[in-house]
Simulated assay, not measured.
Amino acid sequence: MFDRRNLILGTLAASVAASAPSQTPPPARAGDAPVPGLPDPVETIDLWPKGAPGMPAVPPVETVDQRSTDPDLPDRAVRGITRPRLVVFRPRIPNGAAVLAMPGGAYTRIVIDKEGYEIARWLSARGYTVFVLFYRLPGDGWKAGPDVALSDAQRAMRLIRSRARDFAIDPERVAAMGFSAGGHLCCDLATRFAAKTYDPVDAADRLSARPFIAAPIYAVQSMTWPVAHAASREQLIGKDASPALERAHTPAENVTKQTPPCFLLHAEDDPTVPVENSLLFRAALKAQGITVETHLFTNGGHGFGLRKTIGKPVEAWPELFIEWARTQGFA
């Protein structure tokens, strides 16, 4: 049960936790100057207390690339994650709900600002506690192969729930949101939250990894041609994947009656990830009787996040998500 007493106790615990030293710092480039008024977060949670399982023989090297030429509008991406972790955005007054945000990057990198920190700031300003997930990438040679990012997402959901009191959140009300390839991970988590992708490491792994609701945004979904996004498919399952492997990693093939309610968003002019990815997932959800809200916009392209929506109808999408989430009892 989540009540006012839990909120007060959780807020007190959160103030203590906020003063504790960080674990592995957020991904960053040495020498980068902070953007005025938009300081980077500092609080993190390492997913694996004894290190991530299944380390490659030659571990990747974590590298952050800056893709923007505007110092006031950073567009960083990180690759070579070996210490998967959550970066925490605490609201001033928590509303009791949390969001696990999974940025995209074609499973070759993870976008930091455009699909991570920006939506996290927007949601936390409205009372949501947001955890941005920096997950391991399937092309880096981890033992779990195409399930490695899902392992991190499952573990992240369980850790958030295990520490709900620290963050003044209801452990049941934890949503998943993902963008592009992070949208595939979001769909994967929504449909395969109970799949055994790693050996339990502590008490947190006894908790459910099922999101309360899920929001795949312009998501990669299908691994089958011609709908598949080529770069994400190659990184996840390889160029020559069998039809069986394609189906195993196409979330529409894995929808069950336990899949949580979903909010789907896509632009019909998306030149990178065809809108059919979301349409096929919607059809699979409907076939199982799962509640689904779907918004298709004529214009928007791909990877719009928040910054590329200004002045377009698609600019309304975050508010649409919030209003729909309320109808599901999320906040």
Rank of each mutant, 00 (worst) to 15 (best):
125 A>M: 09
35 V>R: 01
172 E>D: 15
296 L>H: 11
47 L>H: 05
50 K>N: 14
306 L>R: 14
15 S>D: 08
39 P>M: 14
126 R>L: 10
178 G>C: 15
62 E>P: 02
107 Y>Q: 04
262 C>T: 14
250 T>G: 14
112 I>G: 05
314 V>H: 06
89 F>K: 00
195 A>E: 07
73 L>G: 01
165 R>Q: 10
278 S>E: 10
8 I>R: 12
322 I>M: 15
77 A>I: 01
323 E>Y: 08
80 G>R: 10
291 T>I: 12
235 Q>V: 01
181 A>Y: 05
157 M>T: 00
164 A>V: 01
321 F>T: 13
199 D>E: 15
17 A>N: 05
28 A>G: 00
5 R>D: 08
207 L>E: 09
16 V>W: 05
223 M>F: 08
22 S>N: 06
147 D>W: 12
182 G>P: 04
43 E>C: 06
118 E>N: 12
213 I>N: 12
64 V>I: 07
167 F>H: 08
252 A>M: 11
77 A>T: 07
59 P>L: 09
179 F>Q: 09
195 A>G: 00
71 P>I: 04
76 R>F: 13
106 A>I: 02
2 F>Q: 01
124 S>W: 11
35 V>H: 04
319 E>F: 10
2 F>G: 03
311 G>M: 08
156 A>G: 15
92 R>S: 14
304 F>R: 06
11 T>P: 03
271 P>R: 01
4 R>Y: 12
89 F>C: 01
70 D>L: 04
156 A>C: 12
118 E>C: 06
36 P>G: 06
151 S>W: 00
35 V>S: 05
48 W>R: 02
122 W>L: 13
187 C>Y: 10
39 P>I: 03
61 V>A: 07
267 A>G: 01
201 V>N: 02
87 V>P: 02
233 R>Q: 10
173 R>K: 15
